[in-house]
């Protein structure tokens, strides 16, 4: 009987934890995507008005962004751009995005949108370059908004659903 009760408690706690963890991951993912959104806005401004090198733009973004994951992303990306071993921008960008996929719990759909920055053709003037990044930013905004609504809808379901499922299983066990 004690074992059953312990098992039941374990299942209840586990299911509740799973629900909370799912919400936590979605929130981390959302925060990262919103930080990337902010970074793209910064990038547009830097390109349009400052005309400075891309590596320096990334360093400025890293200094301005609060989100730890995205800040580290831009710091490391700037280091890659300044590295003596030159590789294509698109390759470097996609590689770094995939590196932060795990940390930020990004999905394949998130990666696809973020990778669009790497695929932007290099423009001969800052305004055109900024505009292209703006288009990716718009796409990301819509995606992030959909995710935010999804989180709101699923928050209660995940938090309480986990506990309810746990109670149900406990009743079955007992």
């Amino acid at each position: 009987m004690i074992l059953r009760i312990m098992g039941a408690v374990f299942v209840l706690v586990g299911m509740t934890y799973a629900g909370v963890l799912a919400i936590y991951r979605m929130q981390v993912r959302l925060a990262c995507l919103q930080a990337f959104e902010t970074s793209f806005v910064f990038m547009q401004q830097e390109l349009q008005f400052a005309q400075i090198r891309m590596a320096q733009v990334c360093i400025h973004i890293a200094e301005a962004i609060q989100n730890q994951i995205v800040r580290e992303f831009y710091k490391e990306f700037a280091a890659q751009l300044q590295s003596k071993e030159k590789q294509k921008f698109s390759q470097l960008w996609i590689w770094k995005i995939r590196e932060c996929q795990k940390q930020a719990y990004l999905t394949a759909a998130d990666i696809t949108i973020l990778s669009e920055v790497g695929a932007i053709p290099f423009c001969l003037d800052g305004a055109a370059q900024a505009k292209m990044i703006g288009q990716v930013d718009e796409h990301l905004k819509r995606h992030t908004e959909a995710l935010r609504i999804q989180i709101e809808q699923k928050r209660k379901l995940y938090q309480y659903g986990g506990a309810i499922a746990g109670v149900f299983i406990v009743i079955l066990l007992l």
Binding site: L47, Q51, I52, R53, M54, A55, L81, Q82, K86, K88, F89, P121, F122, C123, L124, D125, G126, A128, Q129
Partner: peptide
């Protein structure tokens, strides 16, 4: 050519208009 210009401009061809 694009790749060479990318590297030469340090990924910032817009700054070399």
């Amino acid at each position: 050519i694009q790749e060479c210009l990318q590297y030469a401009s340090e990924y910032s061809i817009y700054a070399f208009q």
